Amino acid sequence: MEPGAPKCWALCRLRGLQQQRHLNGARGQLLRPTEGGRWLVRTGADVHAVRAENFSVAAEEVPEPLRRIWASAVASCGFLLLELARSGGTRQLTACLVPLNLPFWALLTLACSLYLQAPLQGPVAPPALGCWRQGCGVQSLLLVVLLRLHQNLVLEPFVGGPAVAKIGAAGYLASFGLGLQSLGPEASAAHVLGNIWFLLGAYCHAWIFEAHFSGHLCQCLLAQSWFFRQGLMHRQLLFSGAPYAGCFFILFVVRRERNLRVRMEAAKMDVEYSLEVFLVEPLRFCQRLALVYIMVYFATYAMDLWIAFEY
Rank of each mutant, 00 (worst) to 15 (best):
S72V: 04
G177A: 02
A187G: 09
G16R: 13
G135V: 10
W70S: 11
M233N: 04
T43R: 12
L93H: 11
L149K: 06
R21W: 10
G89C: 10
L108T: 02
L129W: 12
L237G: 00
I196R: 02
V57G: 00
P243A: 05
P99D: 02
W226A: 14
Y293V: 01
F55S: 01
L66S: 10
A58C: 12
W226R: 12
W226E: 14
W207K: 09
R32M: 11
A118T: 04
R13T: 11
K268T: 10
C136I: 00
L146K: 03
L180K: 00
R42W: 08
L114P: 03
R133S: 08
A202H: 00
V154K: 01
L237W: 07
G241H: 05
L40C: 11
G122S: 07
A242R: 09
R27I: 12
L305I: 01
M269D: 08
A267Y: 05
L116P: 09
P243V: 00
A128W: 11
E64W: 15
R263I: 10
W9D: 10
F278P: 03
A187C: 06
E156A: 14
R148W: 13
H216N: 14
E276Q: 13
C204T: 01
R91E: 14
R13E: 08
V159T: 04
Q181T: 06
N24V: 04
Y273A: 04
V159D: 05
V271I: 07
D46R: 13
L173N: 01
P3K: 10
A71F: 06
W132S: 11
Y273Q: 09
L305S: 04
L221A: 14
P162R: 05
G44E: 03
F285R: 07
Q139A: 07
C286Y: 01
E281W: 08
F158W: 13
G130A: 10
L141R: 03
T43V: 15
L23K: 02
F158I: 01
P126D: 02
A290S: 13
E61M: 12
G231M: 04
G36Q: 14
A302S: 15
E2W: 13
Q19L: 13
G78W: 09
R261A: 14
G25A: 11
S175D: 04
E310W: 14
G168L: 15
A202S: 12
G161I: 02
E281T: 06
G78H: 08
A266L: 13
G231L: 05
L238E: 03
R235G: 11
A169K: 08
A174N: 02
L114K: 06
A85M: 11
A59I: 00
A302M: 07
L193M: 12
E83R: 15
F298I: 00
F249Y: 13
A190C: 08
T34A: 12
I196W: 06
L110N: 09
R51K: 10
E310C: 14
G89Q: 09
